[in-house]
Amino acid sequence: MPKSIIRGYYEDLEQKKVIGKKCNQCGKITFPPTAICEHCGSREIETFELTGEGELLFVSHSMAPPPNPRFNKLAPYAYGHVKLKEGVFVQGIVTGVGIDPASLEEWYHKCPVKVVPDIIDAEGLSILAFKIIESQ
């Protein structure tokens, strides 16, 4: 039976694992995972675990009510642009950040700051969010 890559990604997140693919041809990472190396088109790809850690470059906020009812309880939320340690860029919910202008302006000046994965539940789906670890 074929295994869905998308299903696998979310099941791995549930196990607190952040999984992508790494290419044997060009060495680059495809994250989140697809059926092919997104950089060179090679099928020679292997499962690759990412740390999920990185730097938050910018953080703004979402709208409310949210388009996707999955986020009815969470919106409005802070949403940021993250560069993972492995060099991959990803956007996601940033937990623990207020969305009032004063708070966002403060983070605007502080960024980039370190983040770690904060895998949260969104109506039964484990999703990759981030939380800031402040290095005071």
Binding site: S62, M63, N68, Q91, G92
Partner: peptide, 14 residues
């Protein structure tokens, strides 16, 4: 989209 994508931060605020 399932992980919280929203056009306004992605295409505007950030």
């Amino acid at each position: 989209v399932p992980q919280g994508y929203d056009i306004f931060p992605s295409y505007n605020g950030i």
